[in-house]
Amino acid sequence: MARLWRYGGRWALVYLGLMTAAPAQAAGPLIWALGDSLTAGYGLPPADGFTNRLQAALRQAGVPATVRNGGITGDTSAQGRARLLWGLRGLGVKPDLVILELGANDMLRGMPPSQTAANLDAIMAELKRRRIRVLIAGMRAAPNMGPAYARGFDPIYPRLAKRYGARLYPFFLDGVAADIALLQADGMHPNAKGVSIIIHRILPSVRAALRP
């Protein structure tokens, strides 16, 4: 069952199961992936999306985690910031970890890196205030954006990780970007094989971020 939810002047389809308070915390850790199309699983069957694959990989590794999908295709850092609070409320319980994966759409639209940095900083500050651990999944500027843009954009993620004492995964598409065998026809989003590479590479960082 789903309902249209309005935020930031936009409508988004939200599954009511994510907006209903759970009676109790799950036996294992709860992870919320707050992001855009890369965490939403754009163009893929649900079973092949990032969050489902990450949950399966964690459980196979002996970590009984639940991974909730907080990705919305097309979201910028500003839109992610706008839905942060109701997204946290929708989980019903405080997550043990938030994977923050935003900024790619800012870059693709040529938004000033200072705006992206300010939005991500606000998200990080709120999560720290709530004592929620964060794994920042970084992004890098596409080559066509030029070196000047990259100098302003790329350092955002390591700088915020250092400021807030968060764990950093430097580049979400590491090992996948620019490899047509691992991307969908649009040349931007990973296919099922690409998601497998992402999961394999990010899994140690997720496990480390879950440790006390």
Rank of each mutant, 00 (worst) to 15 (best):
61 A>T: 05
206 V>S: 00
183 L>A: 12
99 I>D: 00
128 K>I: 08
121 D>N: 09
29 P>I: 06
28 G>S: 04
200 H>E: 13
77 S>N: 09
78 A>I: 07
139 M>Y: 07
25 Q>T: 09
14 V>R: 06
83 R>L: 03
118 A>S: 10
54 L>R: 03
32 W>L: 13
102 L>G: 00
54 L>P: 00
129 R>S: 15
50 F>V: 08
51 T>A: 11
181 A>Q: 12
154 D>P: 04
88 L>K: 00
113 P>M: 05
106 D>Y: 00
198 I>T: 06
115 Q>L: 15
66 T>F: 04
103 G>V: 02
112 P>N: 05
197 I>A: 10
73 T>A: 12
188 M>P: 07
36 D>L: 02
51 T>M: 06
94 K>M: 10
127 L>E: 00
173 L>H: 01
37 S>H: 01
46 P>W: 10
74 G>V: 07
111 M>S: 15
64 P>T: 07
55 Q>E: 14
119 N>V: 02
13 L>R: 14
203 L>N: 03
173 L>T: 05
23 P>T: 08
188 M>C: 09
108 L>P: 03
181 A>M: 10
2 A>I: 15
146 G>A: 04
45 P>R: 14
198 I>R: 04
57 A>W: 06
4 L>A: 13
203 L>F: 13
20 T>R: 10
159 R>Q: 14
205 S>M: 10
37 S>D: 03
210 L>M: 11
205 S>P: 06
51 T>K: 02
188 M>I: 15
122 A>K: 08
103 G>M: 02
191 N>E: 08
196 S>L: 12
100 L>I: 06
2 A>F: 15
162 K>D: 13
3 R>Y: 13
93 V>H: 12
93 V>C: 13
84 L>V: 04
197 I>T: 12
151 R>W: 07
2 A>M: 11
10 R>G: 15
132 I>K: 02
168 L>P: 04
134 V>S: 03
59 R>E: 06
31 I>V: 09
20 T>Y: 09
139 M>K: 06
195 V>R: 03
144 N>W: 13
31 I>K: 00
208 A>Y: 05
137 A>E: 05
193 K>E: 15
136 I>C: 02
86 W>A: 10
51 T>S: 09
185 A>M: 11
116 T>R: 01
110 G>Q: 03
79 Q>H: 09
129 R>F: 11
47 A>F: 13
137 A>S: 08
187 G>F: 04
101 E>F: 02
114 S>K: 15
88 L>D: 01
21 A>V: 11
99 I>T: 02
98 V>L: 03
57 A>M: 07
148 A>D: 10
155 P>Q: 07
